[in-house]
């Protein structure tokens, strides 16, 4: 079952199946990779936005917590973690 990271439920680990690099700028793509967001790795969505908006998304990857926008999360396909 393939879902997009921007709509994954909070607190549940998922594995990144595919990232549509074409959906974001080169710089954004590189920063995602620098954060360690790569195909095959596990992430857990933690927090989403405030009353103002559903943006941004905070997620844990390894021992790091990073913030990305929903627009980038929408380009990331995830599957249930093993």
């Amino acid at each position: 079952m393939i879902a997009k990271l921007d709509s994954s439920p909070l607190g549940i680990s998922v594995r990144i199946a595919r990232i549509d690099w074409a959906a974001m700028s080169q710089d954004e793509g590189r920063r995602l990779r620098e954060f360690g967001l790569l195909e095959g790795c596990e992430v857990t969505p933690r927090h989403r936005g405030s009353i103002f908006s559903r943006d941004p998304l905070a997620l844990t990857i390894g021992r790091m917590q990073v913030i990305i926008r929903a627009r980038q999360a929408a380009a990331i396909e995830v599957e249930p973690a093993a």
Partner: peptide, 16 residues
Amino acid sequence: AAFLMDGLMGKVGLSG
């Protein structure tokens, strides 16, 4: 704080 404010700032075209 930047995370919390990003939604609001995003609405006016800025970012957290």
